[in-house]
Design a protein around this nucleic acid. Structure first.
Lengths: 248, 248
DNA sequence: CTGAATTTGTCCGTATGTATG
DNA sequence: ACATACATACGGACAAATTCA
């Protein structure tokens, strides 16, 4: 069969199809720069020997990545990398989506998917320093940068202090500008909790991801300058498009 | 043909077997507390209806999780959760692995897998403020907490300033204590870059993960108190076991 | 320009794994 | 445990488009 390195980490009967494992390795190799000279992918035959799988399996992997928009195949010429760099999203005391992205991309905006006034759960109440059951406003949003959906957020706000926040957000497309309408001209990031998981149905749909994709989950609390919490939010970022930078 | 919620995120022909998707969801549900009352998993029939798959598929998922050590099945009684919470790994100016974990776990240590003196690549040289090609020491390590492998790290150090660092680490099992032997009694985290990806071969082996698992990747630079970089490291955490907290 | 070499695209058949009932 | 349907993986052969000597 394959060359000397017949087993390069491809796990048979593991519940993950070989073509998906190969696709993940190719995608990762592109990100790390180890695969491809930046423009052209090695031929299918070379890849199939490199990974120790059949050419058809490599073709299935490539087909998935083409569908994903990572690769572009041209008959007779080769397969090319549709590369785009990861967006860096900084986390620091003054981190906000708008300030973070503005130096890297021209067009960025937040889209309001929906909103709802509800009673604060124990978790939300604690984060916002309210009584459990207090009226809070929940906003479901998607963030776009250069036309690509990079983040999907669920945010909670004190409904008493910020009535009609959803209207402000729908008009401005920015949390920062919306807060400004309520007299909050600056705010601080108190804490951020970062984890990662497979994308669920909602993520797949709203971030236009393919099954098996990974999301970075950031759970954050923002305070106003007096130290009172004004926002509790969980944001899911497409891990292929975004990386988080922590400046301490 | 499950109940009304036949589609709960289970993706057919996605390259990931249904039983593995169900296993991932159960593992995630346990971590989030949404599945099981903390000790016992719901019956297989309930799970099969909940996820909209056949009972055989749920059984395959449970068998995999039992093999993994996450669940324990007892004939006639039910399936029980071998529970453990996610470890929180703080990132802040004074973050170190040892200080971060010490309040959550009794037994923790770092294991030296291997070391090598090599010439600094452009990336490493820039991070450590050395000339490209300068002698650097690379350490490959695994971090254990309560007997579970939670992190796999590759670290680079100035070979001139820290000769024999690998011996210090092999003996102490701690970066902090190793630095202390060279007169560095404190140091600061300058920057951290966080991303997520699927586990590769090395991760699967060294963190004892199953294929399809996710790793959180943290790339960090540590400075001494004079602001000179002393360590450049990339750590891969098992995303199922670890979450990162950012205090700003 | 011609023809060989290279590379992707399509078709066949067969064996095994996955999912359901 | 059995039966059925579909997805996955492999092997081979050949067509179609491109490159280059």
């Amino acid at each position: 069969m394959g060359p000397e390195d017949s087993q390069l980490g491809m796990e048979r009967r593991s519940g993950v199809a070989l073509w998906r494992q190969v696709a993940d390795r190719i995608r990762h190799g592109i990100g790390g720069g180890t695969l491809g000279d930046g423009h052209k992918l090695p031929p299918e035959i070379w890849l199939s020997e490199h990974f120790g799988v059949n050419r058809h399996t490599v073709r299935a992997a490539i087909a998935a990545l083409v569908q994903e928009g990572v690769l572009r195949a041209e008959q007779g010429r080769g397969t090319f990398i549709e590369s785009r760099k990861r967006l860096a999203y900084p986390i620091s005391a003054r981190t906000r989506f708008s300030t973070g992205m503005q130096h890297q991309t021209r067009d960025r905006r937040g889209i309001l998917l929906g909103h709802q006034q509800e009673e604060a759960s124990a978790r939300v109440a604690e984060a916002l320093a309210l009584e459990p059951g207090a009226a809070v406003l929940r906003l479901e949003t998607v963030s776009e940068a250069d036309g690509r959906r990079v983040g999907r957020a669920t945010g909670w706000f004190d409904a008493v202090r910020f009535p009609g926040f959803e209207k402000a957000y729908a008009e401005t497309g920015s949390i920062t500008l919306s807060f400004a309408r309520f007299g909050v001209n600056d705010y601080l990031r108190r804490s951020t909790l970062v984890s990662a998981r497979h994308a669920d149905t909602d993520d797949l749909e709203n971030l236009k991801l393919s099954p098996g994709a990974i999301v970075l989950v950031a759970i954050a609390i923002n305070d106003d300058l007096e130290g009172r919490p004004i926002q509790f939010a969980e944001t899911r970022f497409a891990a292929d498009l975004v990386e988080l930078t922590v400046e301490t």
